[in-house]
Simulated assay, not measured.
Amino acid sequence: MSGASLKVEPHRTDNIGWLRAAVLGANDGILSTASLVLGVAAAHGSRNGVLVAGVAGLVAGAMSMAAGEYVSVHSQQDTEDADIARERAELRSDDGGEHRELAAIYVGRGLEPALAAQVADQLMAHDALGAHARDELGITEALRARPVQAAVASAMSFATGAALPVLVTWIAPQSILIVSVSSTSLIFLAVLGALAARAGGARLVPGAVRVTFWGALAMGVTAGVGALFGTSI
Rank of each mutant, 00 (worst) to 15 (best):
S2Q: 15
A4H: 12
L6S: 11
L6C: 06
E9H: 06
E9T: 08
E9C: 01
I16C: 07
L19E: 02
A22L: 09
L24R: 05
G29Y: 02
G29N: 05
A41Y: 13
A42T: 13
A42G: 13
A53I: 00
G57I: 08
L58K: 05
V59W: 06
V59Y: 07
A66D: 04
Y70M: 11
S72M: 12
S75Y: 03
R88E: 06
S93T: 11
S93Y: 03
D94Y: 00
A104K: 11
V107W: 05
G110S: 08
L111V: 02
E112W: 04
D121Q: 07
L129W: 06
H132S: 15
A133I: 08
L137P: 04
A151I: 10
V152G: 09
S154T: 07
M156A: 15
F158Y: 15
T160Y: 11
P165S: 14
V166W: 14
I171N: 09
I178A: 09
S180Q: 01
S185F: 01
V191S: 03
A194L: 10
A197H: 07
G200P: 07
V205M: 07
V205I: 12
V205E: 02
A208Y: 00
V209M: 08
V211W: 00
F213N: 02
A216K: 05
M219F: 04
V221C: 09
F229R: 08
S232C: 01
